[in-house]
Design a protein around this nucleic acid. Structure first.
Lengths: 184, 184
DNA sequence: TATTGTTATACTCTATAACTATA
DNA sequence: TATAGTTATAGAGTATAACAATA
């Protein structure tokens, strides 16, 4: 996903720019979509405040640490990036910050001399464990409080399917021809 | 929301979290939370590609246009910012871009000489209508495809409650004391 | 040749603070 | 004094392209 063809995905052309003939989503769907993004945006903003305040890290960095925490072992840069950062240089930048702060360490990869293996340091692990409770607390106060257990379960189920769907969808490497020009 | 609390420098004390006595969420909840953010992050990334490609606008700008489209009339800057941009200057910046591109117009407010009324131009309205179908198409392909009608309905319901909950929650002025865990 | 990762660079966006002007 | 908005500016983050090294 990160060296991939995110950039030239033409998502959906065939439909003319006319609002006319695109069978629109029904209002309920569109509404659900907007509310989803809005709510998550609000949530994300608060979460970032908490991470900044308690651990002085961004959400992106938190995600990278989380991936390492949950991984069975060191990850290559590419593996680490997956779904979190969308450009190689962006990841190098973030990894540089984390390394500078002693939260991760980078070393050679025995299997592949091109690759870099990223390891979580003790400090990184400690930091993650230190900010997690507050993180959890924010998400509970903001996200789970107004929800029943069934809601949460259903939400998790729904978003898992969506996530998996999205992960399989874009061929991510197809590098489809550019074509697309003629800005009419 | 934007004059609310973000502007005063302390930004931090979000929902606050004492690392001490936090009942952790059960794993299912935590999982739901992470998957939610992950899925939305992927979705957002694709959506941004589409908006950039078809309308040369960012998602923030799209949201601002959307607010104007759905508003009964012109909005003040503060009203426009609500939930979309979290600092006054950030909004001025975005509004400046939109105005430069002829998508909105700013003018005086009869009721309050301090305020600025923001109006959607014809070009702004046109652009919004032009990118909406593709936008809808992306969200359908990525978000709604793997979901049943019931899922979508439930999702909308859930996120609406969450959104409303968050909007009422943080009094954003309480300014609880710092209570830094930082030694010295 | 393709892939892994880094670097250099330009650009976008955000946020703090200082400022103007109204209420 | 408090609020609405702008400006100046600094800094964080991202992406593109060029690069080196390895597969």
């Amino acid at each position: 996903m990160y060296g991939g063809g995110v950039n030239d995905r033409r998502t959906h052309p065939p439909v003319s720019a006319d609002t006319g003939d695109v069978q629109p989503l029904d209002p309920g769907q569109l509404e659900a979509y907007f509310v989803l993004l809005e709510a998550v945006s609000l949530l994300q903003h608060q979460v970032e405040q908490q991470l900044r305040a308690e651990g002085d890290i961004t959400y992106v960095q938190f995600q990278l640490l989380a991936r390492l925490v949950h991984a069975p072992g060191p990850l290559t840069m590419t593996q680490l990036a997956d779904g979190v950062v969308y450009s190689r240089s962006g990841l190098t930048y973030q990894a540089g910050l984390l390394e500078k702060n002693g939260l991760i360490a980078r070393g050679p990869c025995p299997d592949d001399d091109r690759a870099t293996l990223v390891t979580l340091t003790q400090a990184g692990s400690d930091l993650f464990r230190r900010v997690l409770p507050g993180h959890v607390e924010v998400s509970r106060a903001l996200l789970f409080d107004p929800l029943t257990d069934r809601d949460v379960h259903h939400l998790g189920d729904i978003m898992t399917r969506v996530r998996d769907h999205m992960r399989t969808l874009p061929p991510r490497s197809a590098a489809p021809r550019k074509r697309r020009t003629t800005p009419s």
